[in-house]
Design a protein around this nucleic acid. Structure first.
Lengths: 321, 321
DNA sequence: CCACAGGTGAAGTAATACTTATGTTGCAAA
DNA sequence: TTTGCAACATAAGTATTACTTCACCTGTGG
């Protein structure tokens, strides 16, 4: 490896200008300094780079090849710096965003499309995943920020969470629900703690933490909640589908079943206490200074979620920042 | 443009190692130096490059993009330097050679093929041309060296020739010739100065310098030689063809018409003085230090010409170096 | 011939990169 | 909790090096 890459900058200018004095002018240094730099460089590559004809510097084959390497580099560098300069005023570059599968698929493409209509120079990479997959991505810098389900986060054991910064974006109502048929046949209108515990449950993913949390929230009994889990699935759609097929009781975000609730196809199992709320937060590394592009997009994200959600869904509350 | 490209080298190592201490070890400097370099670089690009998490440096998007630019560059540089190192021992790279059309087409492909059989890493670019085109190419470094017809060179007016270095490689006998028919019909065996001057001449290219030089050489009469030029062509083949078709007398290199002379199809017009010799020289810039590859090839060139020419042709003398 | 334009070389100075030593922080073992 | 440690930051002094100035060389053009 060369001792000093800086001399390549000098070389670049000497080559393009075809003259040491001209390069010196461009570089705002004395002509002697340029001359010395080139000589040192020639020493480093142990090969002459220019043949000195009077009034003319003729590049050697070695110089020609070196230029082939250096030229694209300095030009890339220049556009890189210009890009950075530019990014201070208006959004550019790539945004790498993580999100929960369900939420991401439903809203993010919409956001991306809307944002790109305003800012063409921004590109996106979306990573859908669970908190277990998203937090490590944030940690290793592979994504810039993520929308993460706080509800699910509580059930995961990731190192320490205090290197992350959370910003609640939306809250969704988490409800216990079953089909009308199941409601009438198995529950028979008895919504007591004892009655509910005896039912068949459909759970989202392996753990039953969400169901336990629901009971804890609604009946304030934290210990010894044991439910019969008859089906475990890994998507909200599957939970809803199972509910519709009378398999049992499941937990869903109410805004995902607005129509079914309205048509009484699915019954919302209510207690006297208010519903459990799950918040989806915008998460990024604590120490990360957001870029201009990120700031703009995050603002856009929050604003858009606000309008979209408030129109379409009940049971989902947008938190203003 | 960045003030200091050298810091990018540090950046490269910090990025690949994912750590400042590790980069410091690789670079054989203190950890502090690396830390300071990165901070200065971040200042220059006015954008953070790494998020400092304890025990972990997480590259930002800006760093990621910068690495995309820097990584191929340093790798190219490394292979460039390795290539240079390598080229000291055995030939590599591209040789750009100029040559006269006639000579080049006849011998250079042979040379290239033979040389490449021994040294696979050498590639060639051949530029065929007249001295008028070849000298400027040499001057501007677009070709490394050239084989140039000294005979023709004398008739051209290029700046000063003393920036070039000449090395005679072969000499060819330059003769005056005509067809047997023309010899009998128009000359009738009279080879006197007066008789010859009255003939029809075929000349190679616009000027009649070569013919005048022939007269000057053979009759030592320098002034007032005026000949009747009936045909001007721009290739040796055309001269030979014209001679065969009885158009007149022309000057050719004898080795190009060995067979025709032997079969008496073409008659060599001799005088008492020895024939004019034209040397083809290997020319390069005076101040140019030849690379190892060039030296090897030039030696090969001379050796090969020596053997090839001595077998095939009379009237062409190889000059040993 | 002389002036000058382009480049090299030497010596002193200015800039900056590097070192050493110390400070800070989060993690992990005691 | 404490202690030790590992990774990095910061400060100040030193060493390196890059740059400037000036003298010099050498073809070119008036």
């Amino acid at each position: 490896m060369l001792q000093n890459l800086d001399r390549l900058k000098v070389f670049y200018h000497v080559f393009t200008q075809g003259s040491i004095v001209a390069a010196a002018e461009v570089l705002y240094v004395s002509q002697s300094a340029v001359s010395q730099s080139i000589q040192k460089l020639e020493g480093e590559v142990s090969s002459p780079l220019f043949i000195r004809l009077h009034k003319q510097l003729v590049p050697t084959a070695a110089a020609e090849r070196l230029y082939e390497i250096v030229a694209p580099f300095v030009e890339d560098l220049q556009s890189y710096l210009k890009g950075i300069e530019n990014a201070k005023d208006h959004p550019t570059g790539e945004l790498r965003i993580g999100a929960p599968m369900e939420f991401g698929k439903a809203y993010l493409p919409l956001m991306v499309a809307g944002f790109r209509a305003k800012y063409q120079d921004v590109t996106f990479t979306l990573e859908f995943g669970t908190p277990e997959t998203l937090f490590p991505l944030l940690r290793s810098g592979q994504i810039d920020f993520a929308l993460i389900d706080v509800f699910l986060t509580q059930n995961t054991h990731i190192g320490s969470l205090d290197i992350f910064h959370f910003d609640a974006v939306v809250e969704e109502e988490v409800i216990l629900a079953c089909s009308k048929y199941y409601y009438e046949q198995s529950l028979g209108g008895d919504l007591s703690f004892a009655s509910l515990l005896k039912q068949d449950f459909i759970s989202y993913r392996k753990d039953q933490q969400t169901i336990k949390q629901w009971f804890k929230h609604h009946f304030a009994k934290s210990n010894n909640i044991q439910v019969r889990n008859v089906l475990t699935v890994d998507s909200h759609e599957a939970v809803i589908s199972a509910i519709k097929n009378n398999i049992g009781i499941g937990i869903v975000a109410s805004h995902l079943v607005t129509n079914e609730l309205y048509e009484k196809q699915i019954i919302h199992i209510k207690t006297s206490s208010p519903e459990l709320m799950n918040s989806i937060s915008l998460v990024h590394l604590q120490d990360k200074i957001p870029t201009f592009t990120e700031k703009i997009f995050e603002k856009y994200l929050v604003d858009t979620i606000k309008s979209v959600v408030s129109i379409n869904h009940v049971g989902m509350r947008v938190l203003c920042q």
